[in-house]
Design a protein around this nucleic acid. Sequence first.
DNA 1: TGAATGATTTACT
DNA 2: GTAAATCATTCAA
Length: 185
Amino acid sequence: MLGLARALVGKILVHATPDGIAAGRIVETEAYRGPEDLAAHSANGRRTKRTEAMFGPAGRAYMFLLYGTSWAFNVTAGALDHPHAVLVRALEPLVGHDLMARRRSLTPERRELTNGPGKLCQALALDRSHYGACLVSSPLFISDGISGKVGRSPRINIDYAGVWAQRDWRFYERDNRYVSVAPRS
DNA sequence: TGAATGATTTACT
DNA sequence: GTAAATCATTCAA
């Protein structure tokens, strides 16, 4: 689980659409370990329409809408009925900078293109239509890549989860300017 | 049926 | 730095 979150750092997320191909290196992830992790949507084994994808096979996309304004993209993990997932929090754009910039209404060189969960979803045009999509055979897939030094830290914005918020379950590539929250210098 | 709530982003002071 | 936006899902009635 934590191993997967760490292994995903440096891999390439690719999304092919009629508009073109957009891809980026994953530079920041967080592990969510249901059902005992109170910070996870699948905490206490909560199985609902929203969390259903996490109870299915690993290697699928788990999408959810946040604050009515942002989508977030996760990779499901764990065996059947083990609702684990890894949240992808940031990407470093590799292919399709112009396409991403157009979708984000920004200029291509801005780090704001993909340095947040909702931002990368907008840049890659990810939304509910990808819910449960297989990440091996669909237009959305993950490819091998090389990562630099990987750092760890507590997860972001889950303070409500008490002791679970203390765990170092966030992984990020050091010295990468696309990481959403800079590590302490 | 209706109210509450975010694994956030953005704009504004 | 703070605050508002905004809506699918969830839970209570």
